[in-house]
Amino acid sequence: MVKGCRHGDNEARKELYMQYGGLMLGLISRYISDKEEAKDVLHDGFIRAYSAFIKFDWRGEGSLRAWLSRLFVNMALNYLTSSENKLQFENIDDEYDLVDDTTIPHENDVMNIPEDVLIGFIQQLPAGYKTVFNLYAIDGFSHKEIAKLLNIKERTSSSQFFKAKQLLVRKINAYLTEK
């Protein structure tokens, strides 16, 4: 399939789309709440992926998924950092704001929460918190890398993540309490 995509074979490209399209759309949805916008970004992302396939090196199981994930994260960030959709990062310098007053949920509790509910909680976060949280906690970027990507300070990145975590924990706890 990789060879076929490199040579522009339509069947190989279709196979790639069908195999990874759902996963990539799920990834984009974590960053972009609007479904139509997410679909547009998916479309553009695959066009870019096919044209850049010549640069992809197969390095074993998972390398293709990792490469596609980084590409689609980049597409989502390009969308979010465009001037019409400018990401807002709250200025969290006040010590009071950073006090951790939440009860951390147990991992087993989190395991019992349905996937789409967790995705919903993440999507409900403010755009700045959501982006940093996704990049750090889910997609594995360091605060230094996030600061470079989003053109913010490293401290801003870590404080945004902290606030995102707080909000998420509150939502999870509220959900568990309701259940």
Partner: peptide
């Protein structure tokens, strides 16, 4: 849980 989340393709 979230990393492997898939959405329905359009």
């Amino acid at each position: 849980k979230v990393q492997n989340h898939e959405e329905k393709l359009p």
